[in-house]
């Protein structure tokens, strides 16, 4: 046995392409199933939500105007990076007492899910856009267009696959997001931030906060510069709170609350469509 002392990792957040600590200065203990503390994670609060939304908004225009091909390349690049760090993620999941076999499956499915959505970026407007035969002398077409800043409450279980299954369709469609990671298992989310950082994803496109979701959901879902919410939290009063807050700025809000993220149902282009605005353009036809 070596005398060497392991260098432990400090888990921070991922905001605007950087890894800041929480503005609050607080952390909370991440425990495994045996209630042993395995790491400390940032306990983000209101101000972190605020900063993350600002970061997301400033990234939106550039990300949404990237070519669909380019977004696809970048999503595929994320998959490549994740594949390369498979062992790290498996270990991190094991740290949380997830069985190795399940951990491997979760990481592999996560990679595959990214590849799945990478392939959709340049097909979504072909499959879900229309050319509309209006009765007047006009050319008329409808195309999906990104909704904007989307807040995501990611699932407690499936800390990596659930996270990726919610983020991938949102950013594949040109949106940017602020993600509240699994409260119980935040470590894979933070490490996934590192993968994103290494994958040509522009800073601010995905922002990941750790902490107690209840301390952040209210601020995120009421934020007037957030255009949509994807919620996986099944608690009834939280759901209602999100809905009510959403009405302040007419957010597009979807709840995905009873899920087995392993199911192929989660490879679903309609999840991309949830955060797409259909824009219809008219133009006369004449000489």
């Amino acid at each position: 046995m070596s005398d060497r002392i392991d260098v432990l990792k400090t888990y921070k957040t991922y905001v605007a392409g950087k890894f800041p600590r929480s503005e609050s200065g607080h952390t909370y203990a991440v425990k495994n199933k045996k209630d042993k503390t395995v790491a400390n994670a940032c306990r983000c609060t209101r101000k972190d939500v605020r900063d993350a939304v600002v970061a997301a908004r400033s990234a939106f225009s550039e990300w949404s105007s990237r070519s669909a091909y380019n977004r696809g390349q970048i999503l595929y690049r994320i998959a490549e990076m994740l594949e390369g760090r498979k062992d790290q993620f498996v270990e991190e999941l094991e740290l949380l007492d997830i069985k190795k076999k399940d951990a491997v499956k979760e990481v592999e499915l996560s990679v595959d899910r990214l590849v799945y959505y990478a392939g959709w970026t340049d097909k979504i407007s072909q499959v879900f856009g229309t050319v509309n035969p209006v009765a007047s002398q006009h050319f008329n077409f409808s195309m999906p267009d990104a909704t904007g800043v989307v807040g995501i409450t990611s699932p407690q279980e499936s800390p990596l696959l659930g996270l990726i299954s919610t983020i991938a369709p949102v950013i594949a469609g040109g949106n940017v997001c602020v993600v509240l990671s699994s409260e119980k298992y935040p470590l894979p989310a933070v490490s996934f931030g590192e993968v994103l950082h290494a994958s040509d994803v522009p800073g601010g496109v995905v922002n990941i906060l750790t902490g107690y979701q209840k301390e952040m959901i209210d601020h995120l879902s009421s934020h007037m510069d957030v255009n949509g919410i994807l919620n996986t939290n099944s608690e009834k009063n939280i759901r209602k709170q999100i809905d009510e807050n959403s009405s302040l700025s007419v957010k597009r809000t979807y709840h995905l609350t009873e899920n087995n993220w392993i199911e192929t149902e989660h490879e679903n282009p309609y999840y991309i469509l949830n955060f797409q605005e259909i824009k219809t353009t008219w133009h006369p036809i004449g000489v």
């Binding site: 007047s136 002398q137 006009h138 006369p284 036809i285 004449g286 000489v287």
Partner: peptide, 10 residues
Amino acid sequence: TIPIDTIGVE
């Protein structure tokens, strides 16, 4: 010279 849009004129 001002461009003319045929459909608008019609």
